[in-house]
Design a protein around this nucleic acid. Structure first.
Lengths: 224, 224
DNA sequence: TATTAACATTGATATATATCAACATTTCTT
DNA sequence: AAGAAATGTTGATATATATCAATGTTAATA
């Protein structure tokens, strides 16, 4: 496999010249993770950035007393950098696979070198970084100013519309994960989801979740 | 007043050459705001970045139903950019003066031009941006995983140690502001502060707040 | 298949937090 | 100085949320 012909590299890397891609090619390593395996661990040294080729993973902050806050899910062909790149070369969040996932680790020094020499690339990197920061601001508002049904509705709308882009998705994500993305306890998450099912807004079967009433869900998101 | 000799410009700008500073000089405007005046308004077009020369201001997200989330306070010689620079050239947060404040507005095109040509400057800009993003991550954990006393303790420790760097500070910040920084209602903020006073952790007089027991405050921050 | 371990569910209860209403104080305006 | 407006304060009450305990279900493993 070759970076130049690879069609599952992050959009960021399509801005590179063949020469630059060749440099990436020589300084990357591809790894396949199984569900539950840790791709990145918060608090460890950052030696590589990541391009997700295949699969799905959760990106989360490890908080207080083993509680996690899931910031977002990552899927092909997302790029995973992080604020440590320019700060302290540490990982400030963890990433764990939710299904079998193939990712490329790219040496951070090569990455930084290319940032300096290719301004199209660095502009797009800044855009990606800015989008993530803005998303964090929105999370902050939603998680602190809405109550549980509104927060869970935000999480589900995110999954249906942004991650899976479909009105049904396979239940690769646990109830605990849904709770961790919505800043509530697992018990509360289960109860809120039960309410949504009773109101025929979603249906949850053994292996998938189906969005039955998008309008109702959006309304719950709005009114908090 | 001249940017080259100015000793209250943001540290960022000390990395510029005299030539670059001259360009800044020709494309900046200095404005003095009085307490309560809006320096930046969320949702409007971003035409300038800001360097704070004198004073104190609150930087906040405008949330749901007129509720605000204060992200941080800005003081001399902070730089104020924001995720809009590389995204959509819009302001994603508002900034309001808490006391008489003098700030310089620097044309964003000039700013972007210098970013491209001076890598010391762009590296330091990235550091500043990353620090703010990391701070937002920490806020997200503290605000969603701690209860009210822990959140208020975080707010007060931030004010004493990071903003004023003193065990007392003038009450330029209202109870509503303290509530908005701690993600709680004003009523609740008043009650939590009353509790801290009853436990002799702080003292609040007409015009200042005094930290009496730093250890106790840190403990409340820890145990949430 | 038996056995654990992880994950899910539910109702009851306790706790945290917001809201409300009434009032006090300060600040601003005329 | 008077009035109005903003801000601060408090206790009572209602609501939201977490925790707990009991139990069920599914998935991993021997």
């Amino acid at each position: 496999m070759n970076c130049i012909s690879c069609d599952c590299k992050s959009q960021l890397f399509s801005l590179l010249t063949d020469e630059e891609l060749d440099m990436v090619q020589k300084n990357r390593v591809n790894v396949v993770f199984r569900p539950g395996e840790t791709i990145r661990k918060q608090g460890t040294a950052m030696t590589h950035v990541i391009s997700v080729n295949r699969g799905l993973a959760k990106l989360y902050l490890e908080g207080i007393e083993n509680r996690n806050a899931i910031l977002r899910l990552v899927k092909p062909t997302n790029f995973i950098g992080g604020p440590g790149i320019y700060l302290d070369m540490m990982h400030h969040y963890s990433v764990t696979a939710l299904m079998e996932s193939s990712v490329c680790f790219i040496d951070i020094h090569v990455f930084k070198k290319i940032i300096k020499q290719n301004s199209l690339f660095s502009d797009e990197f800044m855009k990606d970084f800015s989008r993530n920061t803005l998303a964090a601001y929105n999370r902050l508002i939603n998680l602190t100013q809405k109550q549980m049904p509104g927060r869970m509705a935000d999480t589900l709308l995110y999954l249906f519309h942004e991650i899976f882009q479909c009105n049904k998705f396979p239940m690769l994500i646990s109830k605990q994960d849904l709770a961790d993305h919505s800043a509530m306890s697992k018990d509360s998450a289960v109860k809120v989801l039960r309410g949504f099912q009773n109101d025929a807004i979603i249906r949850i079967t053994d292996n998938e979740m189906i969005l039955l009433d998008d309008e109702a869900m959006k309304k719950i998101s709005r009114i908090g």
